[in-house]
Simulated scan of single mutants.
Amino acid sequence: MSRKQKFHGTSSASKVVADYINQLAKARCAKQTDLGRVLGRSQSYVQTRCSGLQSWSLDDIDALAKYFDFPNAFALLDKARGIQ
């Protein structure tokens, strides 16, 4: 069984959020280890979420929103959805 087969699929909404967090990280030149440090998690935890294999928790999104200079998770989620 491959690693990807171990995980259940995530929703399309989760994948949109993962893609947007990846874009933000790339723009800031942040590595997965940097994001892990922000969250108090491992690089592998971040990797499974950045790849869309697992969903980000709301607490994770809130912490990342602050790291990426958003006021809160709602603002990050709105931007990921294309809402200005």
Rank of each mutant, 00 (worst) to 15 (best):
Q32K: 08
Q43D: 09
L35V: 02
A63T: 09
I21N: 03
S42M: 03
A73Q: 07
K6Y: 11
R28T: 12
R49P: 00
K26P: 00
V46N: 01
A30Y: 11
Q23N: 12
Y20N: 01
A27F: 08
D59G: 09
G82Q: 05
Y20Q: 01
C29K: 15
N22P: 06
F74Y: 12
G40T: 05
F68S: 00
K6L: 14
A18F: 02
A63D: 11
S11I: 06
S12I: 14
S55Q: 11
F74H: 14
A73V: 04
R81C: 07
C29L: 12
G9C: 12
L39A: 07
D34H: 06
R41W: 08
V38I: 14
D19L: 11
N22L: 09
G40K: 07
Q43V: 10
S57R: 07
S44C: 12
S2M: 09
S51K: 09
G9R: 15
I83M: 10
D78S: 15
K15Y: 05
G40L: 06
Y45F: 14
L76K: 01
Q43I: 08
H8Q: 14
K15C: 06
I83N: 12
N22S: 12
Y67M: 11
Q43W: 09
G52Q: 00
W56I: 04
Y20I: 06
A18H: 06
L64R: 02
F68L: 07
Q32I: 01
V46P: 03
K31I: 07
L64M: 10
Y20G: 04
N72I: 02
Q23R: 15
F70C: 04
S57I: 09
A27I: 08
K79N: 08
C29Y: 13
T48H: 10
G82R: 06
K4P: 01
S57D: 08
F7M: 06
Y67W: 13
F68Q: 02
F7C: 07
C29D: 13
R81L: 11
D62R: 04
S42Q: 05
F74D: 14
S44V: 15
V38T: 11
C50M: 15
D62A: 13
A63Q: 13
R81M: 13
R3K: 13
Q54F: 01
T33I: 13
A73P: 03
Q23K: 15
L76Y: 00
C50Q: 11
G82F: 02
Q32N: 13
L35S: 02
V46S: 02
S51G: 08
S57C: 10
V17C: 05
I21E: 01
D78Y: 12
V17G: 01
G52D: 01
N22I: 07
K31Q: 14
A75F: 06
Q23F: 11
R37I: 06
S44H: 12
T48N: 10
L77R: 03
S44N: 13
K26G: 09
T33D: 11
A27T: 10
A25G: 02
L76H: 05
V17W: 02
S11E: 06
G9L: 14
V16W: 01
K26M: 11
V16K: 14
L53N: 06
V16S: 09
D34E: 08
A30K: 06
S14N: 11
